[in-house]
């Protein structure tokens, strides 16, 4: 319908727009990369060099002492360990229990299924700030304040969002698989674990990344429940680090680099899962 000549004219017209778009994106990319660049630069400066104007873009003499100082002053590896442990345990539990419930809501025929699912889904509407205080009181009554169990247990059994995501996926899988397995004499748990679960690797890895990110970055709840330095996760550890060394930006930025770097590496390795997980939450949500 469109002749080749016309296409060329259109392309020329579009070129100006394309260039403007490209320049705009480059400026945006600069706004997103510059902060990290500046963080690294600052983390390599001597204490007196951060207080110079105009700021120097390359440290006169890069020093790595800031990093060893941070490691000496706060036990950042311990915080890492705590964060990894809590996020991993919580996430594995969440993925399993969300799969289990999502499968049941999608594939098993039990009484009151639709109603229970609707009620369960409506808990997504409840804002965290309502739950904060009573959950703290419950943890205090149970004697779990300042123990890792307080930041694991409320989340390990999954949440409405995860169940919803898994249910949507299980609904796309054929029901005949189940029927065939029943005829072969498999029990319901066997059908779930052996037949259906292996088919959900893609969505499970998405949910895994999503849950891990949520747990890893959680701040207010651990801030309230975990007080001992040896129990602190990375976000609350960094927060107390900042309140102790408020103006020593060379140290703070070294701490920021140490905390940000592993997450960035994980993102670069598992970009697909990160981005697809978010995109999916928009489409399904």
């Amino acid at each position: 319908m469109i002749k080749p000549g016309e296409v060329k004219v259109m392309k020329k017209k579009l070129n100006a727009v394309k260039i403007a778009e490209f320049v705009g994106m480059c400026i945006l990319a600069f706004i997103f990369i510059m902060p990290f660049f500046w963080t690294v630069i600052t983390s390599l400066k001597a204490p007196n060099e951060i207080l110079t104007w105009p700021p120097t873009f390359f440290p006169e003499k890069p020093i790595f002492k800031n990093y060893t100082d941070v490691i000496k002053k706060i036990n950042i590896f311990r915080m890492f360990g705590n964060s990894i442990y809590i996020a991993l345990v919580t996430t594995v539990g969440q993925v399993f229990f969300c799969s289990l419930a999502g499968y049941a809501f999608a594939k098993l025929d039990f009484r009151g299924r639709e109603l229970l699912f609707k009620i369960y889904l409506s808990t997504m509407m409840v804002p965290g700030m309502i739950l904060l205080i009573p959950r703290y009181v419950i943890m205090r009554e149970l004697g779990w304040v300042d123990k890792h169990v307080s930041v694991i247990l409320p989340f390990i059994f999954g949440n409405a969002f995860g169940v919803f995501l898994m249910r949507q996926f299980y609904m796309t899988l054929p029901g005949q698989l189940k029927e065939a397995a029943i005829i072969d004499g498999a029990s319901q748990p066997q059908i779930f674990i052996r037949v259906y679960m292996p088919l959900t690797k893609a969505i499970v890895s998405t949910l895994f990344v999503f849950s891990f990110m949520g747990s890893w970055n959680d701040f207010l709840w651990p801030l309230i429940t975990l007080q001992s330095a040896k129990l602190k996760t990375l976000p609350i550890g960094l927060a107390s680090f900042q309140s102790l060394y408020g103006v020593q930006y060379n140290l703070l930025m070294a701490g920021a680099v140490l905390s940000v770097l592993p997450v960035m590496l994980a993102f670069l390795l598992a970009q697909k899962q990160f981005i697809e997980g978010i995109a999916l939450s928009g489409v399904k949500g």
Binding site: F219, S259, V263
Partner: peptide, 8 residues
């Protein structure tokens, strides 16, 4: 930035 904690 989405992947990082608001704290960092």
């Amino acid at each position: 930035p989405v992947t990082l904690s608001m704290i960092s």
